[in-house]
Amino acid sequence: MPGTSSRFHGQSLQPWIALLTAIAFSFTLMAVSDMKGTEIARERTCDILSVLARPFGIFPAILHLSSENARLRAENAALNIESTAAQEALLENERLRNLLDFRSKSKLNLRSAEVIATNPISGVRSLLLDIGTKQGAVKHTAVISDLGLVGKLVQTSEQTSVAQTLLDRNLGAAVRLSICRVNGITSWTGGNRLIVENIPASASVRLDEEVITSGLDGIFPEGIIVGKVVSTKKAPESLFLKVEVAPAVNFARLEEVFIVYPDSSGILQP
């Protein structure tokens, strides 16, 4: 029966044609990934998805509310004590700077943003934020949380932005070890840890030593906490140490972040 045979033949070929078409489209999309039109289409979809995803953000917030509240209360108490001392130190510092005619360092202008969604793809660690170009978000701006460095903005649309986190293999930050004052670059090699490379073997790196941004990459302002040293390794033939760092930020529980705008006026804006 020729009719039956051709129908059967057509049915068995259909999935292969669909697959080949999907593969061809996928590679075409990859090829035009960086084109302006693709970027605009992506921005629009992000804006729509953010509206749908926003209500789901309530659940993690509710779940973490009590523990977050307790942590914030404790932190508030500690900060109250610290703030008095810090105010005194700041005034003293200002006085001394004026005396020495030092130019005061530019301060950071922070703008808060809510995490709407996280990236579901394994290996790409990014966050969808509810802040866009309308609110002044700019590509390659640093993103921080109250605990430390989160990452940088890699995509911006009118209403939303995508931030690439430090746990993405393709993002590195220029950092400095706070006590031994050695500079390095972070990289992610799996799990929830960062590696700081190019640390000379002669450097006396301490456990629990704080790792902060050095500002040398021109993206992340100097002095933002990245994490703490948890271990150091040295291969027998190597001249460098591999320093393992536990990030200060819990990337799985990010609900609110801050976009950092370098403020040349030196005025700290809320």
Binding site: A22, F25, S26, T28, V124, A163
Partner: peptide, 26 residues
């Protein structure tokens, strides 16, 4: 289904568009 959901996921990654469609279609 793979292509449709993949393209939506791709828009959220800020990475390579087309990768999610490829993986989920396959």
């Amino acid at each position: 289904w793979g292509f449709g959901l993949g393209i939506l996921i791709d828009t959220l990654t800020g990475g390579i568009t087309g990768l999610g469609t490829l993986a989920y279609s396959m």
